[in-house]
C-alpha cells in the first residue's frame, strides 16, 4: 500500500497516526504549529498567575496556586515532548517564541489585576481550555492526543479551584464581591474569544476537521463553553457583562452577544505593552539561564568522558 493510502486509511478508520508513521508534510507542519503554539501558551500562561504566588492571601491558596503554575510548566513539557516526536527540538521552538515568530494564546496578553483575576483565569480560561482540549484527546496524532488526556485531568482541577476562589469572593465582603465582578467583567469576553474567529472567517477549520486534528468548529466549542459556564455564573450570583445573553428555548442553547473581534485581532497581532512584557519576562529567564544550562552540559560532558 502507498504511504498516502495507508495514512488516509488510518484517518478514515479514526485510528492514530504515530511518530514513526509516514504523514503528509502539511499534516506534520500543521501539527507542529498547533502543538508548539499550545506549548508556548502553557508556559506564557504561567506568568499572570505566577505573579500572584507571592501575594496569595492565605497559605492554602498560595499552595494551590503554586501547584497550578507548576502543572502548567508540566503541560508545557509534555507538549514540547510531543513536538519532539514530530522532529523539532524544544530549544528551537523557544527561539521562535522569543523572536515572536510563533504565537501563544492571546488570552495571556491580558493582565491579572487583582486576586479575583486568579479565580477568573482558573474558572474561565482553564474552563475554555478544557472545552477546547477534551476533543483533542481524540486527535488523530497519537502523542498529542495522549498528552492531552493527562493535561485535561489537571485542567479540570484548575477550573474547579478557580471557581472556588470566585465563590469565596462572591460570598465574601462587599469589596471582595466587587473584586469578583470586576474580574468577570474583564475576563468574560476574552475567554469566549479563546475559541478563535467565527466559523465564517476561520481559515483552517475544514482541513483540520478532515484530518481529525479538530473535531468541532470554533463556534460549536464556543457555544459549549457558554452553555456550561452560564449556570455556574448564576451560582456565583454575579452579573454577566453581556446584555444579549439569554436562554433560547428553540435552539436549546444560550444566545450571546458579538465579541469585539477588532480587539481580538489586535491581541493576536501582539500589539501593545502586555505582549512585549510577556516575551521580555520569558526571554530574560531564558537568557539569564544560559550560563546555567551551559554549566550543566559542561559538567555532564566532563563526567561522561571520565566514566
Amino acid at each position: 500500500m502507498e504511504a498516502q493510502d495507508r495514512f488516509d486509511a488510518i484517518i478514515a478508520a479514526d485510528e492514530r497516526i504515530e511518530a514513526d508513521d509516514w504523514m503528509p508534510d502539511d499534516y506534520r507542519s500543521t501539527l507542529i504549529r498547533q502543538v508548539a503554539q499550545h506549548a508556548h501558551s502553557e508556559i506564557i500562561g504561567m506568568q499572570p498567575e505566577g505573579e500572584w504566588i507571592p501575594r496569595a492571601p492565605s497559605l492554602r491558596r498560595k499552595a494551590i496556586l503554586t501547584a497550578k503554575v507548576q502543572d502548567e510548566a508540566g503541560h508545557g513539557l509534555y507538549l514540547y515532548g510531543a513536538t519532539e516526536t514530530l522532529g523539532v527540538e524544544r530549544a528551537d521552538l523557544l527561539d521562535l517564541l522569543h523572536s515572536r515568530k510563533q504565537k501563544y494564546s492571546s488570552i495571556f496578553n491580558y493582565p491579572a489585576l487583582t486576586w479575583a483575576d486568579v479565580g477568573a483565569i482558573g474558572w474561565l480560561v482553564d474552563g475554555a481550555a478544557i472545552t477546547n482540549q477534551v476533543p483533542l484527546c481524540r486527535c488523530s496524532y497519537g502523542p498529542y492526543g495522549r498528552a492531552m488526556v493527562r493535561v485535561c485531568k489537571e485542567e479540570s482541577f484548575h477550573q474547579r479551584q478557580g471557581f472556588q476562589i470566585m465563590l469565596t469572593l462572591a460570598e465574601g465582603t462587599d469589596e471582595q464581591k466587587a473584586m469578583a465582578q470586576g474580574a468577570l467583567d474583564r475576563w468574560w469576553w476574552p475567554s469566549i474569544m479563546m475559541f478563535g474567529p467565527p466559523d465564517t472567517e476561520s481559515v483552517h477549520n475544514a482541513r483540520n476537521m478532515a484530518w481529525g486534528i479538530k473535531r468541532y468548529t470554533n463556534d460549536e466549542l464556543r457555544q459549549n463553553f457558554v452553555d456550561m459556564t452560564i449556570p455556574q455564573a448564576e451560582l456565583l450570583g454575579l452579573t454577566m457583562p453581556d446584555p444579549d445573553l439569554r436562554w433560547n428555548e428553540e435552539r436549546g442553547h444560550y444566545d450571546y452577544g458579538e465579541p469585539d473581534w477588532e480587539e481580538f485581532m489586535q491581541m493576536v497581532r501582539g500589539e501593545g505593552e502586555m505582549p512585549a512584557q510577556r516575551i521580555r519576562v520569558r526571554k530574560s529567564a531564558h537568557d539569564d539561564g544560559a550560563w546555567v544550562r551551559e554549566a550543566a552540559e559542561a559538567y555532564a560532558q566532563k563526567h561522561e568522558a571520565a566514566a
Partner: peptide, 10 residues
Amino acid sequence: GQVITHAPEL
C-alpha cells in the same frame, strides 16, 4: 515563589 517563571529552564 518569586523565582517561579524566571528559572533557567522549565
